[in-house]
């Protein structure tokens, strides 16, 4: 049996005494799998993603990603884990306005201690593969939404992570750009990239993932393998 890339066991998370955002959630994701996490607003999708990314820690339960107990990591170790093992794509891109496209993409590699030349070479390679290499020296503000999200994907992949996490990656895009991004994610998965996609968009989930998990009131309500 293949060792899962992601393994959550009985994970719970509650914010400031409110109702649980996640309650006793358990799931596994195998290497090379593409999983869509669906659910209404406030259902706990983003909390799940944050816990997998090491951006947050559960109140109880365990989160293991690529053999690392993420729930036990301190801030510094979590940062190293993110840059080495996880790539993140956000709904609003979260590109840094004062860095060029090339510098945005190279940033995680530089933070990981790679040389400037190596980081730029890897960034250029990804920008080329994603079709936005002509914008390398431009600033993100000049790019369209779809182009910005491609740049964000390039940044997420620059350190060759085991896992790509996408939080509503098409939520801020028009339908054409959204389709482009969906196609891109499908291609990446076809190349073996493990992907966890959080979305409201059922069509996107169906088109680019082979499995959907439905979250409701903080619980895994349905796991459609």
């Amino acid at each position: 049996m293949t060792t899962p890339v992601i393994e959550l066991r009985d994970v719970s998370r509650r914010y400031d005494g409110g109702p649980p955002a996640l309650k006793d959630a358990s799931l596994t994701v195998a290497p090379g799998e593409a999983v869509a996490v669906l659910g209404p607003s406030g259902s706990g999708k983003s909390t799940l993603l944050n816990l997998i990314a090491g951006l947050d820690r559960p109140d109880s339960g365990t989160v293991t990603v690529a053999g690392t107990r993420v729930d036990r990591l301190g801030e510094a170790a979590a940062a190293r884990y993110r840059r080495d093992s996880v790539g993140m794509v956000f709904q609003f891109f979260n590109l840094l306005d004062d860095l060029t496209v090339a510098d945005n993409v190279a940033l995680p590699a530089l933070l990981a201690g790679r040389s400037r030349a190596e980081a730029r070479r890897r960034g250029a390679e990804l920008l080329g593969a994603l079709g936005v290499e002509r914008h390398a020296d431009a600033y993100p503000g000049r790019l369209s939404g779809g182009e910005r999200q491609r740049v964000a994907v390039a940044r997420a992949l620059v350190n060759r992570p085991a896992l790509l996490l996408a939080d509503e990656p098409t939520g801020a895009l028009d339908s054409a750009a959204g389709e482009e991004v969906g196609k891109l994610l499908t291609e990446l998965n076809a190349d073996g990239q493990t992907i966890v996609l959080v979305t409201h968009d059922l069509d996107l989930a169906r088109s680019c993932t082979g499995r959907t998990i439905r979250i409701a009131d903080g619980r895994v309500a349905e796991d459609g393998r």
């Binding site: 940062a79 993110r82 840059r83 956000f90 979260n94 840094l96 940033l107 933070l111 350190n159």
Partner: peptide, 16 residues
Amino acid sequence: VRDLGVHKAVGMTPGQ
């Protein structure tokens, strides 16, 4: 703070 959050999300450690 949001920019710093992005930096941290892509792997910037507390020391960095």
